[in-house]
Amino acid sequence: MKRYFRELSVVGALLAVLLGLAWFAPAFFSPQPLLSLVTREAPTLVVACGMACVIITRQIDISVGSIFSVCSVCAGLLVARGWPLELVLPASVGLGALFGALNGFLVAVLRLPSIVVTLATMVTLRQGLNLIRQGEFVNLPDRVQWFGLSQTAGQLVLVGAALGLLVALAWAMRHIAAGRYLYAVGTDAEAARLAGIRPQLVTLLVFVFIGALTGLGAMMNLAQSPQVQPLTGNGLELKVIAAVVVGGVAISGGRGNLWGAFAGLLLLACVSPALTHLHVEAYWEKAVQGAIILLAVVADGLRSRQNNR
């Protein structure tokens, strides 16, 4: 119990928000709109899972937003050209993995700091996409939305896929050697090396992994609407990093888990619809989100102080 205090406190905060909403704005829980809102966050959850892995390994990736946009646009163009979804999906995942591999190569092999490397790839990809697309929407054929299923079925498939991935990854992080390697490398790379793990390889692969997940997330987003806007991934990186950190994954590596990241994501994703339901004016949204992030880190700080004593 005590071990998961941090994660549980986020869940507690989430429950408090939900309770407050149930009291003041029960309409929030009407099933259909709620399902739509949750489906909108499914791609974000997939990327957040990848981000949690990266941060646990003591790295960071701020290029996910740009990779997300590039994958979305490329996949959209392929679909519009008549490629079947079965081919576009691996193509998008592969493209994401490719960009991830570029980041991973620079970080793991050339030993460059990940924050700067991914900052550079973020800017480069975003501006490259601007240069080529100039913001133009990609219109998709009708067969793409919800993979040709009915809307509710499609939404359930997407949410199910994201949750399934979360469960599988969370399990793998605990029970499979590769998952534990991430914690080992994030805690102390030198010790991990002496224990026979190759930190460089782990780092490279974790970047490839988040790239692939970003490509997957882009596809899950693509399937939700009949158009792709090239700006679609703008700001995604901050959203997922904030979610992961609020969920108790330590930015200094080696600590935290995917369930916490999941709770953090839900908490932050609640803010905007909750404000709408409580009829609070939109001007406060950013300030509230910033305050939640600060609160979470302050809690972390206080707790680690107590532990030190």
Partner: peptide
């Protein structure tokens, strides 16, 4: 952002 407009509208509709 088109996607954000969609989320915001969904919340507006249920609120």
């Amino acid at each position: 952002l088109k996607d954000k407009a969609q989320s915001e509208s969904t919340a507006l509709l249920s609120a």
